Amino acid sequence: MTLRVLLCDDHPLFLDGIAAALSAAEDIEVVAAAATGEEGIRLAGELRPDLVVMDLGLPDMSGLDAIRRLPGVPVLVLSMSEDDPTVLAALKAGARGYLAKLAGRSEILHAVRTVAAGGAVFSGGVADRLMAFLTRPAGPVAPCAFPELTGREREVLELLARGHDNHRIARSLFLSEKTVRNHVSHIFTKLSVRDRAEAVARARNARLGETPGQKQGQGQGQDQGRNPGQE
């Protein structure tokens, strides 16, 4: 049986790459690609694919809202964001799988087949973070960090917290450096911070930018005064 897959992502280069990777498999057909949430919802209703591969940072709405509005189609999330609140929000919205965008082709193919068949798949980093979150001592549920930011701005802030400069962020998100600078400026305004160092400090205090296996709190007090590149 051929799996019919709908892609929903506003990064043209990423869309081309993931479409080529999936179409090369004999058992997978990419039936359409959408660049906005509304387009993805419409195409999912018209084409009834077996699976939707969804980015969370869409230009017209949050990918989480798009997932909630899909007509009962299994969803695999491919995102740059791997923080606990985002992963949990995606699962609550109805996603059956969650991979980092840096996942390899074989991992993505396995995830597509598994989620389409009714299973659940998480990349190693996401699974580690999810397990750590679920096994923490009970306490107040932390709200989603920085709800005032758009999905794309959260992705940029996540990479800022990892110490990436504008050039590296642009390459990671398939954006122009000018677009990244605009996102950084919007982040400064919405978070009421003066510079990158303050934005990074806020992000790390909210546990954005942590890599799998980092000890809780490790690095939060380090490099907060660094200014890795200018806006």
Rank of each mutant, 00 (worst) to 15 (best):
P143F: 04
E158Q: 15
G104Y: 00
G118W: 05
S106R: 13
S81M: 14
H110S: 10
E155D: 11
Y98E: 08
G125A: 12
M80I: 14
G139K: 12
F146E: 03
L91T: 04
L99M: 15
G119K: 05
R129N: 12
A116T: 00
T114M: 10
R152Q: 12
R68Y: 10
V73S: 01
K101Q: 13
L76R: 09
R154I: 03
T114R: 12
S79I: 10
A90N: 09
G119L: 14
S123G: 15
T135Y: 05
R152K: 14
G151W: 01
L88W: 07
F133A: 12
L88K: 12
L130C: 07
V87G: 07
G124L: 06
E148L: 09
L157P: 01
S81E: 12
R152Y: 03
L91I: 09
T114F: 01
R69T: 03
G104A: 13
R105S: 11
C144E: 14
L130R: 12
R129D: 09
V121L: 05
R154V: 04
M80S: 11
P143Q: 09
L70V: 01
C144I: 09
L102R: 12
C144P: 03
R96S: 14
M131I: 08
V156Y: 00
E82V: 13
A90G: 15
M80G: 11
D128V: 03
S81Q: 15
E148I: 07
A116W: 01
G94Q: 05
A120G: 02
E107D: 14
R105K: 13
H110W: 10
P74D: 06
S79N: 08
A132M: 11
K92I: 14
S79D: 13
P147T: 07
S123T: 05
F133K: 10
E155K: 05
A117W: 09
T150K: 03
L102F: 04
E158K: 01
L76H: 11
G119I: 02
S123P: 03
Y98I: 07
A95I: 06
T135G: 07
L102W: 04
I108M: 11
M80W: 04
G124D: 12
L109C: 03
R69Y: 01
K92V: 14
A93G: 06
T114P: 00
G118V: 06
L78A: 12
A132P: 04
G119H: 07
H110I: 00
E82P: 02
R69E: 14
G151S: 10
S79V: 10
D83E: 15
